[in-house]
């Protein structure tokens, strides 16, 4: 089994307002095709960990590997490229460019990657929207759709470059149980059918129990 993501002895401190050891010796790996959830009390460092794993936060000790290649210490431009090509991120709040249409939002990372023609990208994006059953919203402005719909658009965007892993920071935290179920089913389906690797932070016990593996965190440590 190929390891998609691997963290080795990751430590992180916040220096302000007081020195605070937020992540303590985090070591774990995620195999290809695994659907992993992260649980833990509010404030135990789940988001902080996710920002490091997604390469957005570079201020830590330890080593991070993606597809068995060392990510730690790479220059900014390289990290941007890694995020663009290999990592899909879904936030708790539906982060979309509100002045662009749904379709444009989904296409944006692929346009940045620039590996395909505009037509191919548009076709791919429509496909992703179809999988998520929101293709009829394609031409709507992102600011004009509901919260559940926005979260699905964000997932479509995370999928557009066929990333190695999708990370979510409480992606259902803001949704009602119907929509939350819906998002879980989408994740599960992507995992089963497309072999996608997922790492999702959640507070929802039901959600977590249906994933392949739960990582429990407490006070900046992973509980074994």
């Amino acid at each position: 089994m190929k390891t998609v993501l691997e963290a080795k002895h990751i430590d992180k401190y916040f220096k302000k307002p007081v020195l605070f050891h937020v992540l303590k010796d985090i070591t774990f790996g995620i195999d290809q095709g695994e659907f992993v959830s992260v649980m833990g009390k509010s404030g135990c460092g789940k988001s902080t960990l996710l920002y490091i794993l997604s390469t957005m936060d570079t201020d830590y000790e330890g080593e991070l590997y993606l597809n068995e290649a060392l990510v730690t210490g790479q220059p900014d431009d390289k990290l941007s490229y890694i995020r663009n090509k290999h990592i899909g991120f879904v936030f708790q709040f539906h982060y979309l460019l509100s002045e662009f249409t749904v379709l444009e939002n989904v296409m944006l990372p692929a346009k940045k990657l620039g590996e395909k023609t505009f037509e191919e990208i548009e076709h791919d994006a429509m496909n992703k929207l179809k999988i998520l059953e929101i293709d009829k919203l394609a031409r709507k402005r992102a600011s004009r759709i509901s919260g559940g719909e926005k979260q699905r658009v964000a997932i479509a965007r995370a999928l557009i470059n066929s990333p190695s892993i999708i990370m979510g920071d409480e992606p259902t935290g803001n949704l009602d149980s119907y929509n939350s179920d819906n998002v879980f089913n989408i994740f599960k389906q992507l995992c089963m059918e497309e072999g996608l690797t997922l790492l999702v932070v959640t507070h929802d016990m039901d959600f977590a129990e249906r994933t392949d593996r739960i990582i429990n965190m407490s006070d900046g440590r992973i509980l074994q």
Partner: peptide, 16 residues
């Protein structure tokens, strides 16, 4: 600011 964060999170570099 939100747009900037989204762009950076989805792979646009600081220079972009």
């Amino acid at each position: 600011m939100n747009d900037i964060a989204i762009l950076k999170a989805t792979g646009f570099s600081g220079r972009d």
